[in-house]
């Protein structure tokens, strides 16, 4: 096609690299009716759009919704692939959290006596709940950091809203937590807290925490795509956060004697909020006196603000993921 038009090129438009290289032969030009149009005008005339441009926020949400099956399938596939080489297979989904809880109990319950102020039948479920709930946030962030930078092959090969990846990873962690919940229920019941109406609170707590985690995963996914080093730094930040959040000890009891304001601030930590709510829902001996005031409002605030903020923050760089 282009050869015929080549010898009467229009000077107004430089069709193809005719002067970039010595000995380059420029054979291409546009057919006569479109001569003299710039690329942008030509694109406009035939309704072409810029490839890889960022969609509007509403359009982005719609695209994500269209990919909901992929997001779910991807998270389940990741979850299954995790233990497919192990001899015990999917049994590890339950065994891993159980072993984790055992290790923390041995160190903090038996050796360090961190149970301070809590009777044994409250402390063990208290500790296990804390470990599982915090792990949910922790691993959402850890997988979130690598959501883009660890899947560049996928990002560079296929077209889909990139937020699918961090959301999918957060969803994978949620499913992982559901497995852990089986262990948790057994432990809680074994220590004398039986299922009651308060167990219904688990659902809203999980929804709020999932939104919060997803928001965080989106934020660190964007940061990690620009600075992959964050994946190396994250474990330290997360461990500091864990020790501050009262996973192995009750903030109330540990800080008894400090100023009221200080304790309140420590309790507003979102990780502590979700852990305390879950303990409150599950454990009979862990009453409302352990919760900070307006706990539900604070929990809702954290999840809405972090999720919405994280989503917008991630979307703003949508067209730049996959570079470098």
């Amino acid at each position: 096609m282009p050869a015929q038009a080549a010898h009467h090129e229009d000077e107004g438009f430089q069709p193809v690299s005719e002067t970039t290289h010595d000995g380059t032969v420029a054979l291409s030009a546009f057919p006569p009716p479109d001569e003299g149009l710039t690329a942008a005008q030509l694109a406009d005339k035939y309704g072409l759009t810029v490839s890889g441009a960022r969609p509007s926020l509403v359009e982005y949400v719609r695209q994500l919704w269209d990919r909901r099956h992929f997001i779910l399938a991807f998270s389940q596939a990741k979850l299954t692939a995790q233990y497919s080489q192990a001899k015990l297979g999917q049994l590890w989904q339950v065994a891993t959290p159980l072993l984790n809880a055992a290790v923390y109990y041995f160190i903090f319950g038996v050796i360090l006596h961190a149970s301070r102020g809590l009777p044994q039948e409250v402390y063990i479920p208290f500790l296990v709940t804390g470990v599982f709930v915090f792990t949910f946030t922790q691993s959402s962030i850890m997988t979130g950091v690598r959501a883009i930078s660890g899947n560049l092959g996928l990002v560079r090969a296929l077209h889909f809203p990139r937020a699918s990846l961090p959301i999918s990873f957060a969803l994978q962690q949620l499913q992982q937590l559901l497995f852990s919940m089986i262990v948790l229920f057994v432990i809680v019941i074994a220590f004398g807290s039986y299922p009651g109406l308060s167990w219904l609170l688990i659902l809203p707590i999980l929804v709020l925490q999932f939104l919060f985690n997803t928001g965080l995963a989106l934020i660190v996914a964007r940061m990690g795509s620009k600075t992959p080093d964050l994946a190396q730094l994250m474990p330290f930040i997360l461990r500091t956060w864990m020790y501050m959040s009262g996973v192995m000890f009750s903030i109330n009891h540990m800080l008894a004697g400090r100023s009221e304001a200080f304790i309140r601030v420590m309790q507003l930590n979102p990780a502590a909020i979700y852990m305390d709510l879950m303990r409150f829902a599950l454990i009979d001996g862990y009453g409302a006196s352990n919760l900070p005031p307006h706990v539900w409002a604070v929990a809702l605030f954290w999840s809405v603000v972090v999720f919405a903020g994280g989503f917008v923050y991630f979307w703003k760089a949508e067209e730049r993921y996959g570079r470098g």
Partner: peptide
């Protein structure tokens, strides 16, 4: 395909161009 951002210049396309390949997924 719009998978790699351009440093400068633009690509205009009709619809969504697709790469034949799913290996990464």
């Amino acid at each position: 395909a719009g998978l790699l951002p351009a440093e400068s210049g633009k690509v205009y396309t009709n619809g969504q161009p697709s790469l034949l390949g799913v290996n990464a997924a």
